[in-house]
Amino acid sequence: MKTAKNSLETTERKDIIVTKPKKPLKVFISENAKSIFKWGLLLFFLMYTLVPMLWLIISSLKTNTELMGSHFSLPSKLQFGNYINAFAVSGLGTLFLNSIIISLAATLLNVLVAAMAGYVISRFNFKLKEGIFTMFITGILVPINALMVPYFTLITKLNLYDKKIGLILTYAAIGIPMSVYIIRGFMNTIPAELEEAAAIEGCSFYQRFFKIILPLSRTGLVTAGTFQFLLCWNEFIYAMLLTSSVKSRTIQLGVRYFSNQFTTDYTSMYAAIVISIIPSIIGYIIFQEQIISGLTNGAVKG
């Protein structure tokens, strides 16, 4: 209470101190140059990110002749047919559906498993606690691309090659380190008293997890889930390595396959790329706060 009052006083005092004296001309010019530099920089990075994407979307609505004729013209008539083409010719519909099934299932499995482990690591003290946690987070930095042969062997031995479940299991496992890390961070912020009270009331280990901890760490679960979903949706190498047919391949391979099959139909290819990035963009816009808070927690809490 007392500290709150003190800080209030300091903020008031700050207002008084910060009344600015009139600036000399030299300072005015140098400040303007600074602000031009600042805004120039901000806008450069903005354009660098946005313009190619907008160009892609506009090009995906042109005819191929228009595209070849001029890079920067607008389409004379919006060619939504390119999008229909992209779906019809390359089986993109199936791949899109596969991606959704695989990403959702892998995300659910990953978050559940990580939440269970995160609960134990965050809420209990035991001998191997630090060791187990360090082991998990070291996994974040392992270059998993180096493990292609063992993953291939493992999935083949489990008889899961070219099956959706193979990719689901692989993706869920690859994301475990990151998800345990994020979820544990959130669970650490839940006060221990809540659980102690519940234990005295006679709540079992499982009841405490499902009824208290899980609902309270919802933000953490959504954050970890968002990261996990993006990982699954965008993953390429293992989707290529562990599948061989349309029934279990994902949209990332669809886009790639498209580039091989129809090298002359650029505009439909662009449409396919746009289709493949739309779910990511929508997911990002919905869960933006979670993504940012996930990165924030990671950086600050350590």
Binding site: F45, F236, Q252, V255, I273, Q288
Partner: peptide, 17 residues
């Protein structure tokens, strides 16, 4: 928000672009 876009798009889509 915008600066983060490339990080949510797949490497494949970016590469094709």
């Amino acid at each position: 928000t915008v600066y983060f876009f490339p990080n949510i798009i797949s490497g494949v889509a970016l590469a094709m672009m």
